[in-house]
Amino acid sequence: MARRHRFEPNIKKNSTFALNITSMTDMFTILLVFLLQTYSTSDVQIIPEKGLRLPTSASLSSPTEATKISLSTSALKLGQTQIAVVKNADFLAQDLEEHDSNFIKPLFDELDKIAKNNPEKDHVKEGRIILQADKELPYATLRKVMYTASMAGFPQLKLITLVGE
């Protein structure tokens, strides 16, 4: 009796195959267009503070180089350094001047240092500050920051907002 051979499919071990990448290219093209739309061309990068809710505005001006101050419901920061604590939408009494409740001592000291150490920088010379503030904070709290900043030689205030109506 003839012995039955096991069926072996005819597969070439070293064969190559072309991967169809058309759909992947389509996907990447869409992704590229979307990313190009959101590409930031601003020369100044502003990092949004954690827990800080910015108000929306119809303004479409890009930020320029300036001293960055952020005021959230918990802290006042100069750059990334916390300089005062905010509690119940107000500053602690220890951070305010005894005879002038609008004057934030640590903020004035830090801004004064910046003004003295970097007098050659344009934004320091012109006294420009960029303020990121929480949208729910009252004007009374903001006023203290504006007042102290202008006393320290930074009267040009730029308010950071989100794009929207």
Partner: peptide, 28 residues
């Protein structure tokens, strides 16, 4: 399409890093 895809694969991470998903503006 392989070279085109290669360019895109390199471009996408570059754009992802420099994209601003939250647009912040100043009142000025």
């Amino acid at each position: 399409l392989a070279p085109l895809l290669a360019v895109m694969v390199k471009l996408v991470p570059v754009l992802l890093i420099s994209s601003a998903f939250v647009q912040m503006m100043v009142i000025e």
